[in-house]
Amino acid sequence: MKRIFTLFLISAMACGVLSGCSDKSTRTTGKENIVDQLAKEAMSETATDKEQTESPTEAVASSENGDELVISDSGDTSDEEYDKVKGTYDKTAYPEVEANDGTGTPEIDLTQMNSTMVYSEVYNMMSDPTEYRAKTVKMKGTCTMTTDENTGDYFFACLIKDATACCSQGIEFQLVGKKPVPEDYPAENSEITVQGVFDTYFDQGYEYCTLRYARLVE
């Protein structure tokens, strides 16, 4: 009996050490991903959000040295203006993604799921993106925008919240044929339904998830 007891203690401790291997944080990169950043911004920025919603055609991006780059509210952004704030992140799609234009019937239709399932599915898409790459995804949520402070790049995401609205998950989207600037995208905090092809890309060594060839669906 003493031997069994000793064996149990050893196995319990071994399991304790093993359990560390399954920690969720090992599945994600050390850096916050864009959607995490967006989710946090959506939670914390209330006054700023309201201001930007009221005047969606004017966006301000802070540069590294604290100067502000202001995009004009002309309605359409010229290449010259866009290049001022455009960064150099790699937007190259995976080959299997290029074969899908995202117009077909969605393989993952998040609009048909309840909030629990949507939140869980999006979480899993972010955690294990290779399983979902090149699949057509349709989702409904809140449009959120953020900028890279170093490059001035704009990023837009469709954000969904869980039942208690304290946790958010979302996916960045790139509208087909449109530059990622506020003028060409929906206003922040507006309800959107977006359909696109799920893919990932690398920026400064970190992998990010995105919906390519995205279209806004009524």
Binding site: C21, S22, K24, T116, M117, S120, D162, C166
Partner: peptide, 12 residues
């Protein structure tokens, strides 16, 4: 707990 139980992977 929120949705933790619905976000487990095969290792866990």
């Amino acid at each position: 707990g929120s949705m933790s139980i619905l976000t487990l992977d095969s290792e866990e």
